[in-house]
Design a protein around this nucleic acid. Sequence first.
DNA 1: CTGATTCGTGCAATATCGTGCAAAGAACCG
DNA 2: CGGTTCTTTGCACGATATTGCACGAATCAG
Lengths: 246, 246
Amino acid sequence: MLTLHRKTFLLDRLARDRRLHAADLAAELGTSEDTIRRDLRDLAAQGLLVRVHGGALPASPTHVSLAARQGIHAGDKERLGRTAAQLLRDGQIVIIDGGTTNLALVAALSKSLRVTVVTHSPGIAAALEHHALIEVILIGGRIFRHSMVALGAETQNAYSRIRADICLLGVTGLHPDTGMTTGDAEEARLKATMVEAAAETVVLATADKLGVTSPWQIAPLARLGRLVAKGEPPGWLPDRTEFVAV
Amino acid sequence: MLTLHRKTFLLDRLARDRRLHAADLAAELGTSEDTIRRDLRDLAAQGLLVRVHGGALPASPTHVSLAARQGIHAGDKERLGRTAAQLLRDGQIVIIDGGTTNLALVAALSKSLRVTVVTHSPGIAAALEHHALIEVILIGGRIFRHSMVALGAETQNAYSRIRADICLLGVTGLHPDTGMTTGDAEEARLKATMVEAAAETVVLATADKLGVTSPWQIAPLARLGRLVAKGEPPGWLPDRTEFVAV
DNA sequence: CTGATTCGTGCAATATCGTGCAAAGAACCG
DNA sequence: CGGTTCTTTGCACGATATTGCACGAATCAG
């Protein structure tokens, strides 16, 4: 059976059942579980589904509540957020991308931190309501439902007129060859503009992002200033990229 | 069964029954009580429910309804929201101002309503996450902490380039002489632009807003198309303004 | 106060995961 | 056709996650 057929089958089945169970599928397709898991990993890297222990779920939050979804890697994300929150300094201008990991970071920000936050995510902006010393600049645009952030020419344009110190970027893949990548073309374009707008780019990555690649490149690894992740720095990390262990 | 599905099931069931009993659920799902207890512990750690002896209860309502409920006129606002939600029709372009009353309105919107919402409030935008058919246009700007909405030249400019059907405006005063008023000068300017951008302006007002005035005028009463409020229409309401009783 | 229920924790069994490695097959090139 | 390289696949193995059970502590109902 061809790989592409199998992956298509997995996506169809996912659309029908709204869940996938790796072991069952392996038996049904007559392959090893390893193969299924590899397929799921690939599809997850492309943003076509979300991996969970035992199988996978649809990428868009249709039937599994987003609240429950935030529980995926919850512990890891919280630790990443707490560590990365320490990297910010008073007076900085900080671009914060959307995503649950960055939401965890915002929750971990000190109430006495005095920075300017620029974001195109309504969720991030709303979460900063009780940080009285943080000035928030909201970037508008058409809301892209899949990730609940603003997108489009307006958004692009607004970021291109900003000079920030740090960009806290969300990615779905980090790979030695393809660099920082994500699953949506327009989102990739916008993220590229965000990276351009900041002096330094910082990525918070759970283990499932490292060494994988998604369809659309944001920027090469050389543009990555700091990587916040668990454990040891990957061997392929550029010398100029600082590794921050949680 | 996937862990995340079980947790989602628990949340759904909690939303339906307003309570969970661990032992019953264990029997129903065919797992041990320990597993259920562990799930409940995880969900409680995420703040999605509150543990009690024997099971769990809903957490203090989500940030949406929480904000909508923390006001003194909580019940009134909810009723206003439900009534006003009925005024919208498929295909319309709707400007929604910030504020807890409008948040209550968003919470009351039908999941099958197909409109385009334009808003400069991150809270409103975030609350529309689960309304899959509603297109959301987010207007950016500097966040004004007092009311958690975007303000400034950018915001102003964005609204001036929009033609909407309805503007759901928030005011702090409605008075026969001064018209629609609010407490901040720049906010008043922005709200005036919003009124200009819409064919019709609708105000949801609790009783404490009627007949009182705030320092800054948004627009004269003549621009008010509909007033949604409790009880009888005030005598000073212009003839051309339709009164919608809750 | 007492019995029953529920809770939390440690522990062991099972399931699942990620990675390295080798074999089989496909693609490519000369 | 022969050789080389790359991809895919399955397997082994150690690491991690999940689950059920046991047991003592805490809590509840009457």
